[in-house]
Design a protein around this nucleic acid. Structure first.
Lengths: 190, 190
DNA sequence: TATCTAATTAGATTATAATCTAATTAGCTT
DNA sequence: AAGCTAATTAGATTATAATCTAATTAGATA
């Protein structure tokens, strides 16, 4: 139920320690012990709070060797924070169940006979549908060089730079040092 | 402390019953028993939740005979909901402590030698300072006819309609059936 | 494989808070 | 003033959750 999502978001945010964590991660990613140190709390406590923040999807993690870095998902935070102001507006319902039929229709409208993208729609929901469509063929867990991503995108559109940037901004994929990787599905935008 | 305000806001919002109340009041004001009935809870429970919602200032009340009607302060709700996204931005600090010196400066800039308002600033903070300034002379607890309010405003500016509307929109005053009244100070915008 | 580091889980303790019934208060209305 | 209605307060019960220590797991490196 939609209501519970909103309740849960605010219940999670409504804790001083967790807001302090959000505040820290806003500056950039940190690993667990660093957070514990800065807040003067023990690692298990931080683990506990990070679990909750991950559950509502405003924090995600990346492992580097033995250390796990935690990142703030600013977009998601912003979108969730605004939902309370739209509660009851029936826009809300439309927004959360996109059927496969609707997806197919949007794809039909924006992909031409040769499988090329005609244009990237401005409307957020439609744009996401097409971005997701263009991910097909990329594998989870595999890393790609920027050149490989560019080539992949070019089967749909010549402007690979724009679309590559959209992939990253929408959290479909992650980039570090010119290496790209698909984000886990749970991290994708709604 | 600023942080506590934000924590408290979300802690308050993060409750199913309270979100349901917000959702109801979004449609329009209701009295306590009506809310209790619609939610299937007892009046003391509703009282308890309304107290919390009033504490964070997103609900206010008006008495009509024996019945108290509760209203949602949508503006405040929206502003508070957004604060979490701005946490850490130092804009935040500037925003919450307006000194008397700053106020005086803004008033000096926008009120001419004859005590007339030159123009209503577009910047929210400055606008609020001037609106508050123009309330001077009106009494709390007293009711005013629209004509009286118009006359009061005209000592500052000829366009009383715009300014009167701003007073109401900013929650400095309240109108019902053409009768105006100052809102309590706690209800004023930040 | 053994060892090191960082993170998580288990389990206990303590604090917070949602809801109810019963009693009380505030403000009409007659 | 007496009685009525709606709201609040007091106090008890029950559920939820923040934090800690101790034990465990996951992954990297030597």
């Amino acid at each position: 139920m939609q209501l519970d999502r909103i309740v849960n978001f605010h219940k999670t945010i409504g804790d001083k320690t967790r807001i302090r964590i959000i505040s820290l991660l806003k500056e950039g990613p940190l690993h667990g012990q660093a957070i514990a140190g800065k807040l003067g709390l023990k690692p298990p406590t931080i683990s506990h709070h990070l679990t909750k923040l991950k559950q509502i999807d405003i924090v995600y993690q990346r492992r580097d060797k033995n250390t796990i870095y935690f990142y703030l998902n600013k977009d998601k935070l912003e979108r969730m924070a605004l939902e309370i102001t739209r509660i009851g507006d029936n826009e809300m319902f439309e927004k959360f169940d996109i059927t496969e039929g609707e997806k197919a229709k949007v794809i039909r409208n924006f992909i031409d006979g040769n499988g090329k993208l005609k244009a990237l729609p401005a409307q957020r929901k439609k744009k996401l549908i097409l971005l997701e469509y263009m991910l097909r063929g990329l594998e989870h867990g595999k890393t790609y060089k920027e050149k490989e991503i560019n080539e992949h995108i070019q089967q749909y559109h010549q402007d690979f730079a724009t679309i590559r940037r959209e992939f990253v901004m929408a959290h479909f994929m992650y980039r570090q040092d010119g290496i790209y990787e698909l984000n886990p599905v749970e991290m994708w935008p709604v």
